[in-house]
Design a binder for these strands. Structure first.
Length: 422
DNA sequence: TCTGGGGTCCTAGGACCC
DNA sequence: TCTGGGGTCCTAGGACCC
């Protein structure tokens, strides 16, 4: 069995293009939450040298003069496209690890001919025909090699979206082409450290003294180096691990200075976080609420408060009572708050709660509350988020996220289905 | 004026135990 | 002035990922 990494090219941009094919002919960028900065670009935008992470307010003029299309991020659409994408992949791989919204590791059997070109070509065609998404496929003996192969599949044009590390003869040549910054597991700090030591590419990293790497970044570095040498250290994880904590946090459209607005925001995030817990079939034992001002000003201020619950729960009302109390505790007037969040911690799973549940179900009030939560979740799933919510969240609050360039929830809302013109 | 959100893993160091 | 050895658990902080 060999390891592959399959991912969607320019995933968010490709999702937008799949729903509005006219965008394929135009340069296109996707913005982060709150329309903050560029987080995805299609190939036309890339060729105009629009770089990742640029704040919109700095490049708005340039984008306009170049005729670049802009979209706010539409996670309802990307999440649903991702689900469809992964479903297709599951049918064509032996094992699948969904690694992120747009990529998956998998195990694939190599045919007698050793040649996986046909398999890859068919998969690329299937995904494009079914979803309109272009993908790249990297093949190697382990995850790190598959990642590198995937990078080459995208950068070497004539490889047509596929690179098989196990069948190339001159692997050292290809490793040397991979800049140190582009290696999976090497972030900005480590890349800088490597450059200082004269290590500029994957080949040099593979061959540098292990002791130095161990001293700098522990076993993580050693594992990475071993994988470059062809030894598998990182397993494919097919069963999704239960989360240890879950967080909802967002920046505000305008700075918040009143306790009332902060409580609306914290309530809104708590409602979402509780919904997440129920979806994950988990219960929180601890809640943290945090607030912060803009990290781009010298007077940066941040504060958090934590409270342990008497009993683990995923009941929105109980969690709300606690998080609103924490909001009052952390609130400071005279600070221009830009961001706040709620973290659910000390999570336990359904099965660990059996004893509690027995107690709970013996209590009519508790089981009625469980049914109430289930009903609210169902209504919101069917008729859209916030169909039923809590009044403390506020109605159309002024601080809520900016999304000026939002496309339709074309695959998840009946009212927003695209209309084909004859 | 305006700069994302949600995670994981690892390590060091302190508190505490016998 | 001098003060053991071996262990666990927890937390904070740093690094990384997409």
């Amino acid at each position: 069995m060999t390891t592959v990494l399959i991912d969607g090219n320019n995933f968010y941009a490709s999702c937008e293009q799949a729903m509005d094919p006219a965008l394929r002919e135009r340069p296109l960028v996707i913005l982060s939450n709150n329309d903050g900065c560029v987080i995805a670009r299609n190939s036309k935008a890339k060729s105009l040298k629009i770089s990742m992470g640029q704040p919109l307010f700095k490049i708005r003029g340039t984008l306009e003069s170049l005729g670049v299309e802009i979209r706010s991020s539409n996670y309802a659409l990307y999440g649903d496209m991702s689900r469809r994408f992964m479903t297709l992949l599951k049918d064509h791989c032996e094992e699948l690890e969904i690694y992120s919204i747009d990529e998956a590791f998998a195990k694939v059997k190599r045919p007698a001919s050793k040649d996986l070109h046909l398999w890859a070509k068919n998969l690329r065609t299937l995904v494009y025909q079914s979803l309109g998404l272009p993908i790249a496929i990297g093949i190697g003996t382990n995850k790190t090699q598959a990642k590198i192969a995937n990078h080459l599949a995208k950068t070497i044009a004539h490889h047509a979206g596929l690179f098989d590390f196990e069948v190339v003869h001159n692997s050292e040549y290809w490793l040397e082409l991979i800049a140190i910054e582009n290696i999976w597991g090497i972030g900005p700090k480590l890349a800088h450290w490597c450059r200082m030591k004269g290590i500029k590419n994957a080949l040099q990293l593979r061959d540098m003294p292990s002791s130095q790497l161990k001293a700098k970044c522990g076993v993580v570095g050693l594992r990475l180096q071993s994988e470059l040498k062809g030894i598998s250290c990182l397993p494919i994880i097919t069963k999704q691990k239960k989360k240890k904590e879950t967080c909802v946090s967002k920046s505000f459209k305008h700075s918040i200075t009143s306790l009332n607005h902060l409580k609306q925001a914290i309530a809104t995030y708590t409602v979402l976080a509780s919904e997440k817990l129920r979806k994950q079939q988990q219960f929180a034992g601890t809640i943290t609420v945090f607030i912060r001002t803009s990290s781009f000003t010298p007077s940066f201020y941040s504060q958090s408060a934590t409270e342990r619950l008497n009993m683990h729960t995923n009941d929105t009302s109980i969690l709300l009572a606690t998080s609103l109390r924490l909001a009052e505790k952390v609130f400071q007037p005279n600070h221009l708050l830009r961001k706040a969040g709620v973290i659910m911690q000390d999570l336990i799973n359904n099965d660990y709660l059996q004893l509690h549940l027995l107690q709970k179900y013996s209590c009519e009030k508790e089981s009625r509350r469980e049914r109430l939560m289930q009903t609210i979740d169902k209504l919101n799933k069917r008729y859209g988020r916030n169909t039923v919510t809590w009044a403390t969240c506020g109605l159309n609050p002024k601080w809520s996220m900016r999304r000026d360039y939002l496309s339709a929830a074309a695959t998840t809302q009946l009212t927003q289905i695209p209309i084909a013109k004859a």
